[in-house]
């Protein structure tokens, strides 16, 4: 007897503006010229890190910009809270969200995820003899995977910053961190011993959004592609 009545609005997200998630910090500054070349002009406030606003309209009524922590860009896009985003490939490697497509390498935000250890010890450890090693990192998954491929269990000390202090103070033997110029490492008597992955920023897209709103999403992918050419 299940006669069906109450009408429900099918979707709220279908007709709303496309949301582009941008990462705070260094990459945000590099995004500016790229956005301009793509013909996207958010409200100027968006680049002001002191602004308390987090969501900004653009000169396109069907595109809004949000500004979140770089690790959170991937999460917003994976859950469909933002349809597209700009995100470092380090974050994508770390989270490995299956719901994220990464169609474009934007070539900005270049750096690398590397292993570093104290200057004094560098090159003196025979890693093939180790079963376990303690590593301070904000990349637990990347770190565990990297060491697992050489038969070593990485015991992660999860830190969100000031990684470089960890070896000197006995918190860990190694660190795995993002390295751009290497000056922070040098200042803390650490030396980069191994590059795990080169990092650049990617344009990322929510999988369901691309499948269900292909026209609306592809417009923006194409604009970024043209901006790179």
């Amino acid at each position: 007897m299940s006669v069906l009545t109450r009408d429900q609005k099918l979707s709220s997200a279908f007709d709303r503006p496309v949301v582009l998630a941008l990462p705070k910090g260094r990459i945000l500054r590099e995004c500016g010229p790229l956005l301009a070349r793509a013909g996207i002009h958010p409200e100027p406030d968006y680049a002001d890190e002191d602004s308390r606003h987090m969501r900004f309209p653009t000169d396109h009524p069907d595109l809004d910009v949000i500004r979140v922590r770089s690790f959170d860009v991937a999460t917003f896009v994976a859950f469909g809270a933002a349809e597209i985003g700009i995100c470092g490939s380090d974050v994508l490697m770390e989270f490995d969200y299956p719901e994220i497509y990464a169609p474009l390498d934007l070539g900005i935000g270049g750096c690398r995820v590397s292993v570093a250890e104290p200057q004094d010890h560098a090159g003196k450890t025979d890693f093939s003899r180790l079963s376990r090693v303690r590593v301070a990192s904000k990349y637990p998954n990347i770190t565990k995977k990297h060491f697992a491929t050489r038969g070593i269990q990485a015991e992660i000390v999860a830190l969100n910053g000031a990684m470089e202090l960890a070896p000197g103070l006995g918190l860990s033997r190694l660190i795995v961190d993002l390295v751009a110029t290497g000056s922070t490492l040098r200042a803390n008597d650490l030396v980069e011993t191994e590059v795990i992955a080169q990092v650049t920023s990617r344009l990322i897209v929510n999988r369901t959004a691309l499948k269900t709103r292909p026209e609306a999403i592809k417009i923006w992918i194409d604009r970024f592609r043209e901006a790179l050419a």
Binding site: L10, A13, D15, R16, N206, T208, R213
Partner: peptide
């Protein structure tokens, strides 16, 4: 095939 409701996450 996967079936979607437009604007909704999840198949």
């Amino acid at each position: 095939a996967s079936l979607y409701a437009p604007g909704r996450q999840g198949e």
